[in-house]
Amino acid sequence: MDQLVQQLINALSLGGIYAMLALGLAIVFSIVRLINFAHGEIMTFGGYGIFLSMVFGFPPVAALCIGLGAAVVMALAMERAAFRVMRGADVISLLITSFAVSEILKVLFQNGISARPVPISFPSAWSSSYQIGGMTIGVAPTASIFVTILSLGCLTFVLRRLAIGMAMRAAAEDFDMLRMLGVRANRVVAAAFAISGLLAGVAAVIWTAQRGSVDPMMGFFPVLKAFIATVLGGLGSLGGAVLGGFVVGTLEVLTQAFLPDSLTPYRDAIVLSAVIAVLLVRPDGLLPARSGTRS
């Protein structure tokens, strides 16, 4: 029982990270049809933002905020420098562009900072745990679940209640029509990138707070999982991205915790097989994007 609750918390915490990364991918994809392979580097950049501001002596909470801001700036810079000129290009050209951006940034991280993990020393309280009903639960995973819920709540508010959020939903449905209402395409696209960057920044905050280090590949592997989550949930569907993220995170934690040692090398293979099995039954994903969307 104790172990199950702990694993559940770990699953929610990891699933939340995947969910936020997958959401960022899905928001950008739904509007500009870009599968942003460089999304992981936005998260990594946020991580280095935290690392560097700690090095320069900022208190931990301020450093986390700077990390968030760094991720947003990176997302906007990426859109401006690489993707804006490619607007309207086909999905494959956009994907290849994002590969290039991803590689360039990874090389810059390796040569500019370090190829190896750099440590971040957060207050020890963050890595402690507390007792509840006789169970020992980590502070960081608990906090990350709250942060995830808060982020998803804020995003829902923006998309449902604010005009810019409505415009983003409209853009996902019919971007050309939105322009025929006088809306500047660049504004909506920039807003989508800013939100995806913010979510990647939140993921970076949670990730570094739990692991205490940053390396050039920090964002790459979680974003791979987030890709799987978006496909599992239904490419371009925001609800699907969140659901997919939690499913992939949960599968990963459960296989880690409960598989016999002899099978642990096959963990990713088992998770992926489960995803493929789902897609065989539901090829459009668990919660497909609305049909009838114009491209």
Partner: peptide
């Protein structure tokens, strides 16, 4: 080309 997944009011807000 109304935005089918938005409410009537949201269409006008956008």
């Amino acid at each position: 080309r109304i935005f089918a997944s938005l409410s009537v009011e949201e269409n006008l807000i956008v």
